[in-house]
Simulated assay, not measured.
Amino acid sequence: MRLVSSDFTFNRQAKENSLTTITVYTQEHCQPCKATKRWLDKRGITFAEVDVTTSPDDAAAIRALGFKEAPVVIVSTGDPETDLMWSGFDPNNLTKYAHQTKAA
């Protein structure tokens, strides 16, 4: 697992709000994906989910960033310089960065 900052811009909503957005790129039958979604749901944290098995463009973009496992979690403040991303179920990063969110 790695924490990466990038200019990653995928399916972002307009940046009129300074709240953090979270997007979780998942695959069906992926246990770390299910654990990540369960962790967020249990805490009432809003997030958008993209199934990369049904979205080839997003799957290609994730691979282009060097990620090879799901889930890929993107935490965005709307500023590419401060966006954070990592792969795998990582409760430490979720605790640190997943708060006061809106769906991406």
Rank of each mutant, 00 (worst) to 15 (best):
M1C: 09
R2K: 13
L3K: 06
L3M: 09
S6Y: 06
S6A: 11
N11A: 14
R12Y: 03
R12M: 11
Q13K: 14
A14E: 11
E16N: 12
E16K: 06
N17S: 10
T20F: 00
T23A: 10
Y25S: 00
T26L: 00
Q27V: 01
Q27W: 00
E28M: 13
H29V: 06
C30L: 10
Q31L: 08
P32H: 05
A35H: 08
T36E: 08
K37E: 12
W39F: 15
W39R: 09
W39T: 05
L40S: 05
R43A: 09
G44E: 09
I45L: 07
I45H: 06
I45W: 04
A48T: 15
D51N: 15
D51K: 13
T53C: 07
T54A: 14
T54Y: 02
D58Y: 07
D58H: 06
A59T: 01
A59M: 04
A61E: 15
I62G: 12
R63W: 02
R63V: 06
A64W: 07
K68C: 02
A70C: 15
V72N: 01
V73I: 10
I74R: 13
I74H: 10
I74C: 13
S76Q: 08
T77G: 12
T77C: 11
G78L: 07
D79E: 12
E81S: 11
L84I: 15
M85F: 06
W86Q: 02
N93A: 11
L94P: 08
K96L: 06
K96D: 04
Y97M: 09
T101G: 05
T101K: 05
K102W: 05
A103R: 10
